[in-house]
Design a protein around this nucleic acid. Structure first.
Lengths: 215, 215
DNA sequence: CAGTTGATAGACCGATTACTCCAGTTTAAA
DNA sequence: TTTAAACTGGAGTAATCGGTCTATCAACTG
């Protein structure tokens, strides 16, 4: 008999995934066809299905891989000796891959809302990232870098919002976004160091509170 | 001879656009086929092309319409007597249409990076929205609601980042996002009322300014 | 070497794609 | 009423889609 080499198999798999990523970056998550992927990978159409059951399986593997990468980067950041702000600041800036990479991320997010299978993957990793952020914040509290009374869960969600928002403007208008980055960073600092009441403290739903800070 | 009725024609056009929007919400910007749109609109496939040259023309018209709507809403907000924070707060919350509407927005943003034609449309309207924000901020300065030294262009970009970020988390995790909303709102207040030097001036890197208002 | 099995290619499939063509109907000006 | 343009429906287009099938090749085992 003959035994298959799982290492080689996995290597080829990753090779195809790399080609697929290039195609998705170029043509979008729905725009890249299996034919395009095969051409980029230099394999025949039939051969593709020796490594992936369906086209969706490729997409799923790719999303999973990308999110794992982000998770690892954050984890590496938390272990480094840098402050939280320093760790998160790069995330506030543009994606390394540029606009195409961000466009692909938006494709993924949109897709995760329509394809339940990928929704599960994305949600799971989102939870993972938030947990890492919470851990990071907790560590920050122990160092006095983060306000002790801060609701870490809510803060983590807010930080994710800041990161995503930064990505959007970085994609749409890199020039202006560059200037806005330091401001976002200051907002992050403010968030970490200010005792905020996340909920409950807005019963004064005054409709007439128009003129506020007229000091 | 006979002349065509431009009013009736336009009405039917809008009708088809409405059907197309429902399809795009359901199946995504690339996922909805012309056949699906025709079925939803109750017309024959051939008939569709009496009103639109190509499928992309439908998408373009739809993007344009949606962005115009957002622009109008913001403009309406600025003319109302409410404060800036009150005007922008709804934008920080979820989209009325829910997750599907947000997913579609992400589709549009991603598409605008790949299709230059739509990139032009989206960029143009983004500029418009930022101008409205700047105008709003300037008015806020005249009322003392906004710090006088604030760089309005940069602030507007930052606000757009906050709004987009809020949309993302609202889509991915509506529950947590609801709790994070008041925090984002506080960040917005902080942004408007704090004299921020967008660049260069961040040497007061006070690391020990943790305890502030403990009242 | 023989035999088995993974690796690979490419023809091929029905379904679907955006889109076209044309014939029939309606409409209103001439 | 005549007539021609506008409206409408739906069959039909070539191309492409994701995916299957089979045949050949290559490599390892006995």
């Amino acid at each position: 008999m003959r035994k298959l080499d799982p290492v080689k198999h996995e290597k080829k798999r990753q090779e195809i995934l790399g080609a697929a990523m290039r195609c998705f970056l170029r043509s979008g998550l729905k725009g890249a066809s299996t034919a395009e992927i095969c051409a980029e990978a230099g394999i025949s159409p039939g051969h593709l299905y020796h490594y992936f059951d369906t086209r969706d399986a490729i997409v799923a593997a790719l999303i999973e891989g990308r999110l794992e990468k982000v998770t690892e980067q954050l984890k590496a950041g938390i272990q480094g000796a840098r402050s939280i702000v320093e760790t998160l600041a790069p995330e506030l800036e543009g994606q390394p891959g540029g606009a195409a990479a961000m466009a692909l991320i938006f494709d993924m997010m949109a897709e995760s809302k329509r394809n339940p299978e990928m929704g599960k993957i994305v949600n799971s990793h989102n939870r993972g990232i938030r947990e890492i952020l919470v851990e990071m914040l907790r560590y920050g509290q122990s160092r006095g870098e983060v306000e002790a009374k801060l609701d870490l869960e809510v803060a983590a969600t807010t930080i994710m919002a800041l990161m995503h928002g930064a990505k959007v403007v970085a994609m749409q208008n890199p020039k202006e976004a560059g200037k806005a980055m330091p401001v976002l960073r200051q907002l992050l600092v403010h968030l970490l160091m200010t005792p905020m009441e996340s909920a409950g403290a807005e019963p004064p739903r005054a409709k007439k509170t128009v003129a506020r800070a007229r000091s």
